[in-house]
Computed example of a mutant assay.
Amino acid sequence: MTGNLDQDLLLGINALAGTHAGLYELATNSLFRGIPIFGSLVALWFVDDCAKRRSRMLAGLFGVCLATMLSVWLQFHVFVHTRPLLDPALHVNSVAVPWSWDRQSSFPSDTATLFFGLATVVFIENRWAGWLCFLWATVVVALSRVAFAFHYPSDVIGSLVLGVAFVMLFGRPSYPRVVIERMLVTLGNRMYLVHAFLFVFLAEASNLFLSLEQLGKDLVRMVHS
């Protein structure tokens, strides 16, 4: 025990599963970790043809996107602590990852922000499904990020706050929802365009908005070149 609760929790969880390659493969498998949450979103979208509910979901998903982008920005520009895996002062267990880390700071977890935000969208529409999605996001996504020393426990707690707050900020107030609802009503018989947009969004979200992030980096390079 070091007296640092955040670090002690990290080391305790990491000692249990930090070198388990099988658990790592399972926890990072997009289908396995995503299907309860993404499946719930699609089911709730098509359960009936309610513009009010769909507008609320779209507003919440917009909040998820912004929260995830903000979490990535914070990792690049606000240093809180070194990612545990990259901290030479910590002797953590880990597995070989097929990428190099471009962010030394780990607060907050963008992956956990995304999944907690999506779980919040589900929760607003269906309490039981929402609780199950929160449980799944906590165990499969958040705890695995700590177990493999990608993040501290405080990183995923920050992600929980960020993901939930942004969905509530955009999904609960009437103004964003009313604007989106009017758009849905205006589209009328062209709802297939909204369905297509939703599926593209969910596909990108399941890949952690990596294409969107890369597009942003490319645009920044073009501006400064």
Rank of each mutant, 00 (worst) to 15 (best):
A67G: 09
H195T: 06
V141I: 11
A67Q: 09
P108L: 07
G188L: 09
T82S: 13
G22K: 03
F123G: 02
V80D: 01
H224I: 10
H151M: 06
A119G: 03
Q7R: 10
M57A: 11
S71G: 08
V42Y: 07
R127Q: 12
M57Q: 14
V156L: 04
F209M: 10
V92E: 04
A119H: 03
V220Q: 12
A149G: 09
V140M: 04
L215F: 12
F38G: 04
V47F: 14
L162E: 06
D6M: 02
N29E: 02
R53A: 01
L85G: 08
S100F: 05
D48C: 14
P176I: 07
V161P: 02
M168G: 00
G34E: 01
T19I: 02
I180A: 08
R172P: 08
R56Y: 10
C65T: 15
G12H: 09
V140L: 05
S225C: 05
R56N: 05
A129N: 07
V139W: 08
L193T: 11
S105K: 04
H77G: 01
R190S: 09
V200G: 00
V95E: 07
A96T: 15
I180P: 02
F76G: 11
N29T: 09
W131P: 01
L210H: 15
G171Q: 05
Y175A: 15
T186Q: 12
L212W: 09
G22T: 01
T19K: 14
A27K: 02
L160S: 05
L187G: 10
L193P: 04
P84D: 00
V122I: 05
P153I: 05
S211M: 12
F32L: 01
M168Q: 08
V220C: 06
N29M: 06
L31R: 14
G130E: 03
V47H: 14
L58P: 00
